[in-house]
Design a protein around this nucleic acid. Structure first.
Lengths: 154, 154
DNA sequence: TTTGAAAATAGCAACCG
DNA sequence: CGGTTGCTATTTTCAAA
């Protein structure tokens, strides 16, 4: 098993990025190879850690979770990074955490059911975290796009 | 077919959110129902638009895409929103666009292979977009977490 | 990498509670 | 009426060429 990805691997990734539940037979047709090859390549990329897993793309608003909020967090000291990450991880509504450079120290994505839920969450679970100096928040009104990179070229 | 989601639906969503490629038989075992039910519920939720699709979770750095950058964009006028979104959509490296309120007008996520790629991309494809007044950018050094909401309660 | 075959699963229909 | 069960077509998965 070679550890380098070729054009076939990239094609498979692009196809599965769009629909991870597509069966191998159809993927094989689109990629122009046999189902067995798709199976082998996919397993290889999972073992390599290139494919970390598969997840559903959900319409949160239809599930009653109407708000998506981003928080740009400033730390009191850079060394508190890990403690704050750990504390944020405890909050179930926090779905993404990025350690960033530039404007904010940490960048977080949160889901909330409504503004009441969000306010309570923000005040009772986020603001109380030790080590946070300041927070800038912005509410996502609409997700206009959500896609993957097209792994065309080498 | 009822249009309301019950506890079984939520359980299925939670399981598939963690691994969208798990087969229905295993999902059924975990959810404590029959495979037929899982099949039926999943189809219902797809038809309702609750499940929009499934996508791979990839390790971009292993694919040679080392940088993730967030851009907070300020518009010259709010009315230019749609034009700017359209222009951003043309840029292949832009993977997410959020229309937001609070600090920025538009919030964007970008993948780039390296800093050279990013700089060229930023200057030649983003900065030139008509209607953008200013941009604040921050680079994600590390994604510490990426998960879904646990749809436990109603 | 493909091919072909065996095992497992998806998807459906009729039945049951 | 929705869930389960059992059946069939399809798909996954592996071994051999």
């Amino acid at each position: 098993m070679r550890d380098k990805l070729d054009a076939v691997d990239h094609t498979i990734l692009t196809i599965l990025s769009e629909d991870a539940q597509m069966n191998y037979t159809d993927v094989a047709k689109r990629a122009g190879v046999s189902p067995g090859t798709v199976h082998m390549r996919t397993r290889k990329m999972k073992n390599m850690g290139v494919i970390k897993g598969a997840t559903l793309s959900l319409d949160y608003s239809k599930l009653g979770w109407k708000m998506t909020v981003f928080l740009g967090i400033f730390l009191k000291q850079a060394s508190l990074y890990k403690d704050v990450i750990d504390a944020l991880s405890e909050v179930e509504e926090v779905v993404k955490i990025h350690h960033s450079t530039g404007k904010y120290d940490i960048f977080v994505k949160i889901h909330a059911k409504d503004s009441l839920h969000y306010r309570r969450l923000y005040q009772e679970s986020i603001l109380v975290i030790e080590g946070i100096r300041d927070i800038e928040s912005f509410i996502s009104l609409e997700e206009s796009m959500n896609r993957h990179i097209h792994f065309g070229e080498k």
